[in-house]
Computed example of a mutant assay.
Amino acid sequence: MPGATAPRTAATAPGRPAGAPGPARTGRGAAVVPPLAVLAGVVAAFGWVAAVDPNEPGHYPACPLLRWTGVHCPGCGGLRSAHAVAHGDLVTALHANALAVLAYAGFAAFLAVWLVRAATGRPLELRPRPVHVWSLAALALLFTVVRNTPLGRGLVP
């Protein structure tokens, strides 16, 4: 038809030479890279802790809060717990730091959801409400208080 112009494509857009490649498309393959990178980091960290036993003195620094005050923080025993989890010993892991075991499980679930959503092309929106953040902080505080009283003697690593 006289006077009609061809539709513009990425290759024929103004300022782009004919035959030049268009903008790169990012597919689902690129979306799974961040969760896979985090997974690789977690596997590497757990692999390191599995190989280098935190129960042997001198491998890791001591908890400064425990050293200077005698108070077990919510993270005390976390490396020993991770070591036990890496070796499949859940009972020892729970005794070393039950809160850490719950955190490992929660993070594993989060990572699985992130990976599935990335693989299916759905974005992951993480918008915790203040009540969720405060609840987690209260749980950590309660765990810390209980494990430093005679009632929580079984929670001390």
Rank of each mutant, 00 (worst) to 15 (best):
V91H: 15
A24V: 15
L99S: 09
Y104S: 04
T144N: 05
P23E: 08
A109E: 06
P23K: 07
A20T: 06
A40K: 01
C63I: 07
G29F: 07
T12Y: 00
G41C: 01
G27T: 14
E56C: 07
R16V: 11
R67M: 09
M1G: 05
D89Y: 08
C63Q: 09
L142Y: 01
A13M: 09
L99T: 08
L155M: 02
G27L: 05
S135E: 04
P35F: 03
A108Y: 05
P74A: 14
E125V: 15
G29I: 05
V156P: 00
V101L: 11
V146A: 06
V113P: 10
D53S: 04
P74H: 14
A13Y: 01
G58F: 08
A98M: 11
A45N: 00
A140W: 11
R8C: 08
W68I: 13
G15V: 02
R127S: 11
G3V: 05
P14V: 09
R67K: 14
A118D: 01
P150S: 13
L126A: 10
G41L: 03
L39N: 02
T120D: 03
P128Q: 03
R147L: 03
P157Q: 07
A40C: 06
C76V: 11
W68T: 14
A109R: 14
S135C: 10
P64G: 05
A112Q: 01
P17N: 08
A40D: 06
N97H: 11
A37T: 09
V38P: 03
G19A: 09
A118C: 02
A86I: 13
L115P: 01
P23V: 11
L79T: 14
C76H: 12
T5R: 14
T26S: 12
V91E: 15
A137H: 01
T144R: 08
F46Q: 01
V156R: 15
T12I: 07
P128R: 07
L139H: 06
V133M: 03
P54M: 07
S81D: 09
R117M: 04
A44G: 01
A18E: 08
R129T: 12
G22N: 00
P128I: 04
R16Y: 02
A37S: 07
A84D: 15
V156H: 12
Y60P: 03
A18M: 08
R153G: 09
A31F: 08
L139M: 12
A105M: 13
T69F: 02
P74F: 12
P130V: 09
V52G: 00
T149W: 02
T5A: 06
P128H: 04
V91Q: 15
R122P: 07
L66K: 15
N148L: 07
F46P: 00
P64M: 07
F110Q: 04
G77W: 12
C76I: 11
Y104K: 02
G19Y: 02
A105P: 09
G152Y: 00
G19H: 07
H87Q: 12
L136T: 05
W48K: 01
G88H: 14
R28A: 01
A86V: 10
P74Y: 11
G78L: 14
R67A: 15
T92P: 13
A112N: 06
